[in-house]
Simulated assay, not measured.
Amino acid sequence: MNTDAFRSSISPASYQRAAQEDRCGPRTRLAIPAQLRASGGRGFRTFVQDLSISGFSAAAINRMHEGQLCWLTLPGLQSMQAQVVWWQDCTVGCAFTELLSPIVHDDIVARYRGDEA
């Protein structure tokens, strides 16, 4: 397979579609206290409601717009850039700009599910 042709067929839009429509990573329902900041705005406290390696949904009282960049900060981690895919009824769904490491994902899930020993 020609890898250049393969790479050129992958676009941010195809990534977002895979992240949100195909749900390429299993979503885990959680309640994680976090900080969310929209591009050009102030950060605000939120709760991440579900998490996968490709994205998350979180509470967002103020309307966020499709395509808007934002940064999610989870306890003990650096801010992660994401893009708003949808907003409805004070909940925002976002796709991470870079996939979350499965190891980091599993650690977060274990911590907030109470699986940690």
Results as ranks from 00 to 15, higher is better:
residue 57 S to H: 00
residue 99 L to T: 09
residue 31 A to F: 10
residue 55 G to Q: 03
residue 97 T to G: 00
residue 105 H to F: 15
residue 104 V to I: 15
residue 48 V to W: 08
residue 22 D to P: 00
residue 117 A to F: 08
residue 83 Q to G: 09
residue 4 D to S: 13
residue 46 T to I: 07
residue 58 A to C: 13
residue 108 I to P: 04
residue 4 D to V: 01
residue 14 S to G: 03
residue 7 R to K: 10
residue 36 L to P: 07
residue 108 I to M: 08
residue 25 G to V: 00
residue 1 M to P: 07
residue 94 C to M: 07
residue 77 L to I: 02
residue 116 E to P: 03
residue 35 Q to I: 06
residue 30 L to I: 11
residue 30 L to E: 11
residue 27 R to I: 08
residue 12 P to Q: 07
residue 85 V to I: 15
residue 100 L to G: 05
residue 113 R to Y: 05
residue 52 S to I: 07
residue 6 F to Q: 02
residue 17 R to P: 01
residue 61 I to R: 11
residue 93 G to H: 07
residue 84 V to M: 06
residue 73 T to V: 09
residue 36 L to W: 10
residue 3 T to N: 08
residue 30 L to D: 06
residue 60 A to K: 05
residue 27 R to L: 11
residue 43 G to K: 05
residue 95 A to Y: 11
residue 70 C to Q: 09
residue 86 W to S: 13
residue 13 A to Y: 04
residue 70 C to T: 02
residue 39 S to N: 09
residue 79 S to K: 04
residue 107 D to G: 06
residue 89 D to L: 02
residue 52 S to R: 06
residue 76 G to M: 03
residue 99 L to N: 02
residue 10 I to H: 00
residue 93 G to W: 08
residue 11 S to G: 01
residue 95 A to P: 01
residue 19 A to N: 04
residue 111 R to Q: 12
residue 31 A to L: 12
